[in-house]
Design a protein around this nucleic acid. Structure first.
Length: 287
DNA sequence: CGCCAGGAACCTC
DNA sequence: GAGGTTCATGGC
């Protein structure tokens, strides 16, 4: 396999962090090499001092997949400006977290695989989700050779039995997966049409799917549809907001903050790249 | 053992 | 609509 190199400073990008921070689950690291399947071909990635050594993918496709076209200087200054305008002062907490995770990028994943991944994410941790997705991949994907599989198409999952998916550790999420797979396989235009919608319309549309609530919809919009304004609120982000930002939240709450309260707060507080800000906060932990 | 995890469906009121 | 309950499972 031909290998190429994409020159890139390690100061600007962290492949390990990007692939292990809970955005994507089907990639594996052996030694210093990451491998996965992208658009049906086996891709290998190694980051070293020179940049990214890659094979199985074109430079332009790699650029897009890794989000390397994102202007991080612009994104960071936009986030800082919105923070500063909202609170009329610096946010030392965010700045500290940002320094730890600023070299991650938001991936541009396959929407179907991303959708399945986050339906599987409900009420479990990143490591368990990875196991689950890799079982689905290995048992129901189509072989690409070298022991690697392409993620199963919607029609393949649609024809799985509930027990087969439970055997992949899907648990009570198994029927959600089958219902959604049936819908997507019989409505092939559904996911492509999401890309054409406004953020709110797209979120509403995704939430029609079984197993997809506001959190899963936001993850899919952020990680697969490059809606960088989407802010998934998981238990960790909720905790951060309630501890760090509750005193400055400008709108009134009744009782506990709702999902939309917190997601909307982040969009106001961090601005149009709030999804990136959210991921910088989320990624500063051990996975 | 008990508690938690990138939640959503379902039921009550 | 808001609030509680249930749903599996691995990891610690």
């Amino acid at each position: 396999m031909n290998t190429h190199i994409l020159p890139l400073s390690q100061d600007l990008f962290d492949l390990d962090l990007t692939l292990s921070c809970g955005q994507i689950f089907g990639w594996k690291k052996t030694g210093d090499m990451w491998s996965g399947v992208h658009k049906g071909s086996i891709v290998s990635l190694i980051q070293n001092d020179e940049g990214i050594v890659y094979s199985g993918i074109s430079e332009s496709a790699l650029f897009r997949f890794l989000g390397l076209h994102d202007d991080m200087k612009k994104i960071h200054s936009s986030i800082e400006e919105h923070i500063s305008a909202y609170r009329n002062g610096p946010d030392n907490f965010f700045s500290t977290q940002y320094e730890l995770s600023k070299r991650l990028r938001i991936l541009r994943q396959d929407p179907w695989e991303c959708l399945v991944s986050f339906i599987c994410s409900a009420n479990s941790n990143v490591r368990t989700i990875g196991k689950r997705i890799n079982l689905i991949l290995d048992r129901h994907g189509t072989s690409c050779g070298k022991g690697k599989c392409k993620f199963p198409d919607p029609c393949v999952l649609a024809s799985c039995s509930e027990q087969e998916l439970r055997d992949c550790l899907a648990g009570y999420r198994a029927p959600y997966l089958i219902k959604t797979a049936k819908y997507i396989s019989t409505h092939p235009d559904f996911l492509p049409s999401i890309a054409e919608m406004s953020y709110l319309d797209a979120k509403r549309a995704l939430m029609v799917l079984s197993g997809v609530g506001p959190k899963v919809a936001d993850c899919v919009l952020l990680f697969a549809f490059e809606r960088l304004e989407a802010v998934p609120i998981d238990i960790r982000i909720r905790s951060i907001i309630e501890h760090q930002y509750a005193p400055i939240i400008k709108f009134q709450k009744t009782g506990r903050y709702s999902y939309d309260d917190l997601s909307l707060f982040c969009q106001e507080y961090f601005g149009p790249y709030a999804g990136y800000a959210q991921q910088f906060l989320f990624a500063t932990r051990d996975f």
